[in-house]
Design a protein around this nucleic acid. Sequence first.
DNA 1: TTATTTAATAGTAACAATTACTACTACAAT
DNA 2: ATTGTAGTAGTAATTGTTACTATTAAATAA
Lengths: 129, 129
Amino acid sequence: MKTLKYSRQRESIKTCLMARHDHPTADALYTSIREEFPNISLGTVYRNLNLLVELGEIQKLTCGDGADHFDADTSPHYHFVCRNCGHVYDLPMDPMDSINQLAQKHAEGQVESHTIYFYGTCNDCLGNN
Amino acid sequence: MKTLKYSRQRESIKTCLMARHDHPTADALYTSIREEFPNISLGTVYRNLNLLVELGEIQKLTCGDGADHFDADTSPHYHFVCRNCGHVYDLPMDPMDSINQLAQKHAEGQVESHTIYFYGTCNDCLGNN
DNA sequence: TTATTTAATAGTAACAATTACTACTACAAT
DNA sequence: ATTGTAGTAGTAATTGTTACTATTAAATAA
C-alpha cells in the first residue's frame, strides 16, 4: 500500500483553493500558486488536484466550458454558471436528496448521486451591480 | 447572411444519431458513419454536430467523462450515467422546471435553465440482466 | 443545360486541456 | 547515515476539438 507523504506543494494547492471561492481551473490555480512557488509544475497541480479529489478533500466541477473547475467545499451543493462570462457561483440552497429516489424509479440501475448546474446570466453581466 | 446548404454528410449524421439511443460521442458516431461514408472526415462530424446543436436539432451532453456526447432527442429530459462502464441512459422522468425558481432565490443572477446528471451503476454492470 | 456563386467537404495542421514519463529531490523509516 | 519510496520539475505525449486550405458539390441564374 502506498503511504501518503507530505508535500509543501500539495499543502499550498489545497490552502490556495480553500482561500478562494471562484472555483478556479487547474491552470488558474497554477498561476496563483506560482506567486508562492515560482517553479511549481503544472503537472504537479493536476496530479495533486486529482489526488485530493480521490481523497475526498476537494471536488471537481465539470460545468461544460471545456476546462474542469475545482472547489474546496466538498459539502453537497449546487452551482450557477454564467453563460456570458463563465463565472461559477455557489448556490446556497439545500441539496435535493429526494430527487435521487425520483430518478431511481426510472433508472436502469442503482442511482447513487446527482449533479445539477444552473445556467443563466450573472448580475455582473446583467449590469445589476 | 449565410444560407444553409444541403449535404448528404450532415443528413447522414443526423439520421445516424436519431437511429441510435446510446448518446454517442463524436468519435463513436464518426466510426459508424464511416460504414456509409468511408471517407468522411472527423472534422465534418464535429462541425455538423455543433451546427445541429446551434440549430436546436440535437443536444450536447457534457457528463464529465472527457468527451461530449450527443442526443437527437431535444426534449428536456435527464440522464443516468454509469460510473463503471460510462454508458449514458435516458431517464424518462418529467423535467423539474420548478427547481429553476428554487435556484433563482439564491442565485446571483438570472437563472434560465439547468442540467441534471444522475450517477450510479447500471443494471448491466450490477449483473442484474 | 451550362455557368456562376458559395457552402461544405476531406485532409491535415493546430490547439488546449490533461496525462504520462523520466531523471532527480526530499522525506521518513530503518 | 543509508536506503526505499513518494513527490517534484520539466518535458513529451495523448486526447478531444477546432481551424485552415484546396477542392467538391449544391443552389441559383443565364
